[in-house]
Structures are given as C-alpha cells and as structure tokens.
C-alpha cells in the first residue's frame, strides 16, 4: 500500500516536472511549479522529514508562487509567453541514456545505513548525531530535535541565513523601487 502511494507520488512528481518545462505560458508554469512543490512536500513528509515538508509547502507552494506571479504581472503580456525551440535529437537520445547509466550505476551503491543494527554511520554522524538525539532534550528542554539543532547547536548558521534573507529584501528594494521619490 505504501509502495503504491510512493510510486504514484513519484509519477506525479515527474509529470509535473516535465509539464513545467513544456508549458508555453509562464503563469501556467508557475502554477504547475506550485503543484510540484506540494508534491515534493508530500515526498518529504513520506520520508519522515516533517519540518522540511512544512517549509517546502509554505515557501515553495505559497510565498514563491506569489512572488513569481507578482513578477509576471509586472512584465508585459507578450513576455509571459515563451516560444520553445524544438528539442535537439542529441538531447532527446543522449539524456535518457545518461539517466539509464546513472540508474545502472546506482544499483551498485552500498545500501544507505540507518544505524539500526549497529551499522557504522560514518564518522560525522556517529560523532554528533547520536549525541544530539540522546542529549538535546536534557540540554535544551526542546522536544523537537530539528529545532534544537537549528536554533542552538547550529545557531551561527541560522543567524547567517537570516542575514541572507535580510540582504535579499534590501537588494530587492534597492533594485526595484523608484529612487527619485
């Protein structure tokens, strides 16, 4: 049952991804992209990454869609239509072949360790992941480990990310607003 759900989700994901690259009207492309983000959020949730799924749904499907649409409404009507050149034969034959080769190579990869049967998780994850999972609650009184890692253990990273977002807002204001006023 779960596998059926996963396969249906992946098929829908690929369909929307192809749809984005085929559609002529950019506004339709933005709306299909929003669908893609929602499906991607479902995939994250399916994989157990609920925080990532939340942000993907909120940012990818919500805010990014609104920003894209506002940008397109600023553009002239003929600029929201694009004429796509015919796909060259080399790409049409070569890219599926490349994909097949990658899938063929992926079969030989070692299985991803989940640490359940005392498997070696690799150096970095054995050093910190176990400690985060075991001790973060006593140290921070925060049941959600993701939040504890983001805001406390990796607070510098989050601080710089916040700075990046702030800079993006300032850059948009400087570029787009009328400076004469």
């Amino acid at each position: 049952m779960m596998e059926f759900f996963e396969i249906a989700l992946l098929i829908l994901l690929i369909t929307t991804a192809v749809g984005i690259s085929r559609v002529r009207n950019l506004i339709s492309a933005v709306l299909v992209l929003a669908c893609y983000s929602f499906l991607m959020a479902a995939v994250w949730a399916q994989l157990g990454a609920v925080d990532v799924a939340f942000v993907e749904a909120v940012v990818g499907a919500g805010l990014a869609t609104v920003l894209f649409l506002l940008t397109l409404f600023r553009a002239r009507a003929q600029d929201t239509q694009i004429r796509r050149a015919r796909t060259p034969l080399v790409a049409l034959l070569g890219l599926p072949l490349l994909g097949f080769l990658l899938l063929y190579a992926a079969v030989d990869l070692p299985p991803y360790p989940d640490g359940r049967d005392g498997q070696d998780l690799g150096k970095a994850s054995t050093r910190v992941a176990a400690e985060y999972l075991q001790k973060s609650y006593q140290k921070t009184e925060t049941p959600n480990v993701v939040t504890a890692v983001l805001m406390d253990y990796r607070a510098f990273d989050t601080l710089i990310e916040t700075g990046v977002i702030f800079t993006a807002g300032i850059a948009c204001a400087l570029l787009l607003r009328d400076r004469a006023k």
Binding site: L70, T162, A168, G169, L176, R177
Partner: peptide
C-alpha cells in the same frame, strides 16, 4: 537554552515576515 531558542525564533520569524512584505511591496510598486 529553551528561552534562547524561543527568542531567536521570534527574531527569525520577524525578519522573514518583514522581508516577504518588503519584497512584495518592491514588486508591486
């Protein structure tokens, strides 16, 4: 630490909400 996490989260939320509004006002102007 718990309090620190709450306070910094309020900071992140304020920054992102205001930036989203600012970008939209920039685009809509």
């Amino acid at each position: 630490r718990s309090l620190g996490i709450v306070l910094t989260q309020i900071g992140v939320a304020a920054d992102i909400a205001v930036t989203a509004l600012s970008i939209v006002f920039s685009l809509g102007r």
